[in-house]
Design a protein around this nucleic acid. Structure first.
Length: 271
DNA sequence: ATGCCTCGACTATCGAGA
């Protein structure tokens, strides 16, 4: 691995909506975008059936926390892994929605936050309690002042500027004030939304429904986020949304959100 | 109003997604 001479490390999050249905899309995007670390959600497959070999051929190692049929998360890295934690602490694990590992000196947290619809159901209660647990973990991760990147499909539209028409989604669990407040509670711990820090333009989306020609009409939401701890935010170089995969054949309904952080070697330079 | 598509589990429909 060429660790010397690499100025920036590129991180991305992508809900692929089945890794088996999406493998060719994922491989071509890895070749085109050349990320170093990728957080995948909704792989919808057990660990044993994750297509590791095809991904390894492109130089990535994989860690997988899968589940049959639904959910499931994985992290790809061309810089190795350490200290893998496959469960969100602080409660009973009901689905495969969480995977944490150290890559270089960065703690990478991959989440697939419960959708929570319909609101005022058990699923909604589950979403709220999951967010409370995530906040506790996010706070805990700040203690040792290591760079942390908390990425994934949050199923939260942070503001009315992050959706094509907030009125159409009134009452939806991705937009409810209580859910937005729970998301902000994590931000207020000291996390920075990487995309928002670098892109003031409103109405930029990471998800477009399959139905109703939502992609063609740009009726989308921004629900995939990369949150950076202060030590990670110090190293933020750029961030964006790569909309190309959403326009491909057999696309996922989500598209990758990415950011680049200064490599560890750059921060070692003393004045 | 939720399902205008898509997926996986199954083999004919159906739950889930957001």
């Amino acid at each position: 691995m060429p660790k010397c001479g690499l100025k920036f490390v590129k991180f991305a999050t992508w809900n692929v909506n089945s890794i088996r249905a999406r493998i060719s899309n994922v491989l071509s995007w890895l070749r085109a975008a050349n990320p170093n670390v990728v957080m995948l959600q909704e792989i919808k497959v057990v660990d044993e059936c994750f297509p590791r070999l095809k991904i390894q051929e492109l130089g990535y190692q994989c860690i997988v926390h899968g589940q049959k049929g639904y959910n499931g998360v994985a992290i790809l890295s061309n810089r190795g892994f350490g200290d893998v934690l496959p469960y969100l602490p602080g409660g009973k694990e009901e689905d495969a929605r969480y995977l944490e590992a150290t890559i270089d000196d960065v703690r990478v947290v991959n989440i697939y936050l419960p959708n929570g619809n319909p609101a005022n159901s058990e699923k909604y209660i589950y979403k709220l309690s999951w967010m409370k647990r995530l906040k506790m973990r996010a706070k805990e991760l700040l203690i040792d002042e290591m760079p942390v990147i908390l990425g994934g499909d949050y199923n939260v539209i942070p503001t009315d500027d992050d959706v094509y028409d907030h009125n159409e989604l009134q009452g939806n669990a991705v937009i409810k004030p209580e859910i937005r407040a729970a998301f902000r509670e994590i931000l207020w711990l000291g996390y920075t939304d990487a995309f928002r820090a670098k892109n003031p333009t409103k109405h930029r989306y990471s998800y477009w429904d399959y139905s109703g020609r939502a992609w063609q009409n740009n009726r989308g939401f921004l629900i995939d986020h990369l949150l950076l701890s202060p030590q990670a935010a110090d190293r933020l170089e750029d961030a964006g949304i790569d909309t190309n995969p959403r326009g491909q054949k057999k696309a996922s309904d989500h598209t990758p959100v990415w950011c680049t952080l200064a490599d560890r070697s750059m921060t070692k330079i003393m004045p």
